[in-house]
Each structure stands twice: as structure tokens, then as C-alpha cells.
């Protein structure tokens, strides 16, 4: 199969042709990896690793799924591996609901109300049908890039395919309590970043 790139699809089965992979899927896979890691170098490496890992697994290719689906599944596992690495060490620490050292605390200690300078303001994002335009999207991507990698891992994994919280916690070795604290902090920072950059 490998040596017959000219062979066409027949009987609804998909064939595999690694010679075409880069031209056909590299940009797609790169976009997929970048939106989940927010790191260009990391995304590039993951795409390359995906192709090389796929070559090793060519024999196990199920002709029922398309090459694209198959490669994407391999990449997805690599992305999750990457999250796992990013969050290693998180398990040992107990993350408290208060902001840690070096972090913005959005609330007044003890009273727990918003600090005056961090009070969320209405700027359009709170509307029922907010302007979800390109500009806001690119601000969102830039804001995601600023997050600590552990937070990005937890947050993106939860939103990626609505995975169960318990699964994510065990994959990333995070306690459930820490998981929610990270989700909370991530959102506080993301929202503030969007407000700051949107005018």
C-alpha cells in the first residue's frame, strides 16, 4: 500500500499515503496543535512527532477512518501528553482559593469583595449575543498565551471535548479541589485580560 500512492480509494476504504501527509495535513494539524498549546514551537514539534509516530503505526491504520481523522487522534494524544508534562508537580501542591504569591488577587483579603481596580466592567462581552468577532477572538488567543502552562492545560482540556472532570484530574494528577481553583483563577485572569485589551 505504501508504495502505491497513485492507488485510489475503492470500496469506501481509505488508503494511506505518507508522501502526501505534509502537503495535505500539516497546516491543519499545526492549527489544531496551536489552538490547544498556544505555543508555536511546541505546536510545530507536536506535528512533526505526530507524523513520525504515525509512520511507526502505519500497520495499525484502520481503513475505516480517514487519514486525517487518524492523524488527528494521534496528535490529540500527544497534546494530552504535553498537558501531563506541563502539570506534573501540580499534584504535590495544594492550591488555595486565595491568589498565590506573584499572582493578581482580584479580591480584598478577608472581605472577599472585588478590589476597586479589578471590578469587572460591562464592555459588550456580557450581552446575550455579544460581538464574537475576529478581533475579540485574536485577543482571546493572546490572553490564553499569557496563562501559566499548567492552567492552560487544565482549562483547555476541560473545554476541548467536554471530558469528565475526574478523567482530567487523573490524567493530569490534579486533585478535584485544585482543579476548580485553577478553573476559577484562569477565568478571572482571562476575563480581566479581555477587558484590558478591548476598547
Amino acid at each position: 500500500m505504501l508504495n502505491n500512492p497513485q492507488q485510489t480509494q475503492s470500496g469506501g476504504e481509505y488508503l494511506i499515503d505518507p508522501h502526501q501527509w505534509v502537503d495535505k495535513y500539516a497546516d491543519y494539524l499545526y492549527t489544531y496543535a496551536f489552538t490547544r498549546t498556544n505555543n508555536e514551537d511546541k505546536a510545530r514539534d507536536l506535528v512533526q512527532e505526530t507524523f513520525l509516530a504515525a509512520l511507526e503505526k502505519v500497520d495499525g491504520f484502520e481503513s475505516r477512518s480517514s487519514e486525517k481523522t487518524w492523524l488527528t487522534a494521534i496528535l490529540k494524544n500527544k497534546v494530552i501528553d504535553n498537558y501531563r508534562k506541563a502539570s506534573s508537580g501540580l499534584a504535590k501542591k495544594t492550591v488555595s482559593l486565595d491568589a498565590g504569591a506573584g499572582q493578581t488577587d482580584f479580591f480584598v483579603p478577608d472581605y472577599n469583595n472585588w478590589r476597586p481596580e479589578h471590578v469587572p466592567k460591562a464592555f459588550g462581552l456580557e450581552d446575550d449575543c455579544p460581538m464574537l468577532n475576529k478581533e475579540l477572538n485574536s485577543i482571546l488567543q493572546r490572553c490564553l498565551q499569557k496563562l501559566p502552562s499548567q492552567w492552560l492545560a487544565v482549562f483547555t482540556m476541560k473545554h476541548m471535548d467536554d471530558a469528565k472532570t475526574e478523567e482530567i484530574c487523573s490524567e493530569l494528577k490534579v486533585t478535584t479541589a485544585n482543579f476548580w481553583v485553577i478553573i476559577h483563577r484562569t477565568k478571572l485572569n482571562l476575563r480581566a485580560c479581555l477587558q484590558r485589551n478591548w476598547n
Binding site: L125, E126, T156, H159
Partner: peptide, 26 residues
């Protein structure tokens, strides 16, 4: 905050699930 937060979740969901957003080039 609650309304903005819900809309951020929607945006993130679209970002991760919508193939039609601009494809990046290697």
C-alpha cells in the same frame, strides 16, 4: 462577571471545535 464568563466559554468552545476559523500556516 457571570454573563461575560459564559460568553468566554462559548468563545473558547468555538475556538477549539470550529474548523472553519483561519487555518494557520507552517
Amino acid at each position: 462577571f457571570m454573563q461575560q464568563s459564559a460568553n468566554i466559554n462559548k468563545m473558547v468552545h468555538n475556538l477549539l471545535h470550529d474548523d472553519t476559523h483561519t487555518e494557520m500556516k507552517l
